[in-house]
Amino acid sequence: MADLLIVDDEPNVLNALRRMCMNRTATPAIPDPHVATFAAPLEALAYMRTNRVDLVISDYRMPEMDGASFLTKAKMLQPDAARMILSAFSDMEGIVRAINDAGIFRFVAKPWGDTELRASIVQVLEHRDMMLENRRLADEVRQQQDIISRQQLELVRLEAESPGITRVRWTPDGGVLIEE
């Protein structure tokens, strides 16, 4: 299961990317893809508050905010989601921000080649899985060494299950703030 989130202000691009991701006969194929597409970055961020995402692919030039800003916010929401930019345009300053602030894994230029893009996506997903696996193994080791408490483990598990659950914000009258 691979949960992909794609943001581009051009609906035709979104449709084409969805078709490309869902293509199961191609090699390499993305394993068990589930694709959510958004034309507006703000809607995508709203989605990410409640839905776990493995990989975020974003255009760079968009009306509400640019790709670097969007991915920086996405990273704050779900640090474990991998990030890519797919764009026909970026200035140097934009690329630098995308790498340094948003910590993107790949920058792919438009027009893209399906095979290359799919290969990149598969690679990035594998890379992410490996990182998560590494962390899990390290946690396991620490657990065995009794370094982290059960509570912390539970928090990590909960966060992985429902993003944002460990960062509940309270209103002065005791209510729970769900949205930012």
């Binding site: 051009e10 990317l17 078709r19 490309m20 191609a26 030039r61 438009k110 893209w112 399906d114």
Partner: peptide
């Protein structure tokens, strides 16, 4: 030029990609 490139590369990108998809559809 950057804007023009964007305006050209966007459609070229998705049309190319669509052709890939169409190929697999036709295969099916």
């Amino acid at each position: 030029a950057a804007g023009v490139a964007h305006e050209i590369n966007n459609p070229v990108g998705f049309v190319l990609s669509n052709l890939g998809a169409l190929e697999s559809y036709v295969g099916s």
